[in-house]
């Protein structure tokens, strides 16, 4: 996989920072970081599928929603222990991933994106009318069992989940499999023409993405202790995930993590100055400028900076 010393150094530094953060920040900031951790998980999930294969998913809240709802319903309505509910939620989300995969056998590009958007909208309408006694209908659910108490425990749980997912996906994407998935994004016909089954590869990408989304969704609902369909199946939530992945650097796993933190803090720090929706104007402007001048995202800016610092010693760029 071509691991180098600086890969170990960077990962060690990343983990050390994540462990040390609670020592330096307030409870309030910690709660913001917890949200950034979950956003990073969702952005990684999106990146594994859309960043690599080019099948742009506008339906990620659909997958996250399956994970969150399954675990919430199982624990709250059926008293299933949480350690069984979460794996069950992940399995359900992967089944959802297969549903999203089916149109990808036939269509791609914007048509695929729109179909996945329809999945999200459809689920939003369905949870309100089908068995509202289970889903809580429009009002959603509250009083869902939580895994942790207090910001500190919530932080450690979300951070270790995020770091574990990021590290394992990063390692997975550095194998030849990751190369093959990227190749699909560049030219799917040529991948077939190289003797590889694109159906198999795409199914793997959808299942892996759904696995991460389901895990994130289930843990998220057990952190919040509640679920609100209007906030979950929401176009703003969807775009926050996608912009986090793109602004950080799609197809890199680490980029989406950086993007998620950048975006979360940007929106939070603008809050005192611009309490309303105007914040989104600044956020849009920054995203636009970044895409214009560095379409590969923040990670590419960092990479260039690193390269400038160390170019005398190393011709390789970290990736």
């Amino acid at each position: 996989m071509g691991l180098r010393w600086y890969h170990f150094a960077l990962w060690a530094a990343f983990i050390a920072i994540m462990v040390a953060i609670p020592e330096f920040v307030s409870k309030g900031t910690l709660r913001i970081i917890i949200f950034a951790n979950f956003l990073a998980i969702f952005a990684i999930s999106w990146d594994v599928l859309s960043g690599r294969t080019g099948y742009i998913s506008f339906g990620h809240p659909f997958l996250i929603g399956i994970g969150a709802y399954t675990s919430a319903i199982l624990t709250k309505r059926f008293d299933v222990p949480i350690e069984w509910a979460i794996p069950a939620a992940v399995v359900m989300t992967m089944i959802g991933g297969i549903i999203v995969f089916l149109p990808a056998l036939r269509i791609k590009g914007s048509y695929f994106a729109l179909v996945t958007l329809a999945f999200m909208e459809l689920t939003y309408q369905l949870v309100q009318v089908i068995r509202p006694d289970l889903t809580g209908g429009t009002r959603g659910m509250s009083g869902v069992q939580t895994l942790t108490r207090g910001a500190l425990n919530g932080y450690y749980l979300s951070a270790s989940l995020m770091v574990t997912i990021a590290l394992s996906m990063w390692l997975l994407m550095r194998t030849q499999l990751g190369t093959a998935l990227s190749a699909i994004g560049m030219n799917e016909e040529s991948v077939r023409g190289s003797g590889l089954s694109t159906t198999k590869l795409k199914l793997f990408a959808f299942l892996t993405s759904a696995f991460v989304a389901g895990l994130g969704g289930a843990f998220y609902v057990h952190y919040l202790g509640s679920i609100a369909p209007r906030a979950l199946f929401d176009i703003n939530f969807l775009f926050t995930i996608i912009v986090a992945a793109l602004i950080g650097g799609a197809s890199t796993i680490i980029g989406p993590v950086i993007g998620a933190f950048f975006l979360t803090f940007l929106l939070e720090y603008l809050r005192p100055y611009l309490p309303g929706a105007e914040r989104y104007f600044i956020y849009g402007l920054i995203a636009l400028l970044l895409y214009m001048y560095e379409p590969k995202g923040i990670i590419e800016l960092l990479r260039k900076g690193w390269h400038r610092l160390f170019s005398r010693h190393s011709v390789e760029t970290p990736s």
């Binding site: 499999l177 190369t179 093959a180 190749a183 190289s194 003797g195 590889l196 089954s197 590869l201 793997f204």
Partner: peptide, 10 residues
């Protein structure tokens, strides 16, 4: 070239 060399097995 690597893509051409890959085994068709995940």
């Amino acid at each position: 070239i690597r893509v051409g060399q890959m085994p068709n097995n995940l």
